[in-house]
């Protein structure tokens, strides 16, 4: 039993799903609100459910609703989707060293299910010092939990949208801010990380008026550059 000290496949899978529980909580209101807002924006119930099932990217789904309601054309919506989702390329580049040994039949679904939340959880698991060969099962557990949750919440939203008016004014979106805050804060105990966060925050605030969430990309870039520069300075003799 060469790997007897490592968690088995199915336990990795369930731990991945369990560790994603706070993210499910954070994403749930967005799924519900997305479903609720679909009909008023001019997207059919089937369209909303299909979007959650096949696109599976919360922020670009919201922006698509916004653009649909504003009468935007198809090319604009697709370009916006591309820009808003670019951060996922950074995530997959980060995870690549860990999945490079897997077959494509693993890599394709794992890529399809890559989200902010699953990335946040999974990169912590990959960073853990144990050499478990089954960490991709953890990834799968987190991904499927997020996927099932997102689809069910969209369904709930579509149904609720027909019965409760003004649901989007309850402040449920705070769950997302809380989730992300809880993830970020423990990282801020090193000077480069703190600098990266401050730079990202400053640029995000300054550039928040830019269209297509471009401000988000600029802020991420600023944060990363400042973090790396501070790290270099700290290590310089």
């Amino acid at each position: 039993m060469p790997h007897s000290s490592h968690p088995r496949r199915h336990s990795e899978f369930w731990i991945g799903a369990r560790d994603s529980l706070p993210m499910l909580l954070g994403a749930a209101p967005f799924g519900i609100i997305f479903g609720t807002l679909a009909a008023p924006s001019g997207l059919s119930a089937t369209g909303a459910l299909a979007m959650s099932l096949f696109v599976f990217a919360g922020s670009s789904q919201f922006i698509a609703l916004n653009l649909l309601a504003g009468g935007a054309g198809l090319p604009v919506i697709l370009l916006t989707t591309f820009v808003v989702n670019l951060r996922h390329a950074l995530y997959s580049a980060t995870l690549l060293p860990h999945v490079a040994g897997l077959r494509q039949r693993w890599r394709i679904p794992l890529a399809f299910w890559l989200t902010d939340e699953t990335f946040a959880v999974v990169q912590l698991r990959y960073a853990a010092p144990d050499l478990s060969p089954h960490k991709h099962w953890y990834y799968l557990g987190s991904a499927l939990a997020m996927y099932g949750n997102w689809f069910l919440c969209t369904l709930v939203g579509v149904l609720l949208g027909r019965s409760i008016p003004r649901l989007e004014h309850l402040g449920l979106e705070f769950a997302m801010a809380a989730t992300f805050t809880g993830i970020v804060v423990p990282f801020l105990k090193s000077m480069p990380m703190l600098g990266a966060a401050l730079a990202a925050a400053a640029v995000a605030l300054a550039a928040r008026g830019l269209p297509y969430k471009l401000g988000l990309l600029l802020a991420a870039l600023a944060g990363v550059v400042i973090g790396v520069v501070l790290e270099e300075l700290r290590e310089a003799p």
């Binding site: 580049a93 999945v99 990335f119 990202a200 640029v203 802020a219 990363v224």
Partner: peptide, 28 residues
């Protein structure tokens, strides 16, 4: 990136850079 897989080698600077991505994006 997943498609390119093992044909793509990551220099150490890229690894370092990417460690700051989650904090930067989420804070933003």
């Amino acid at each position: 990136f997943f498609a390119l897989g093992d044909r793509l080698a990551f220099p150490p600077l890229a690894h370092r850079t990417l460690r700051y991505v989650p904090v930067a994006v989420l804070t933003a």
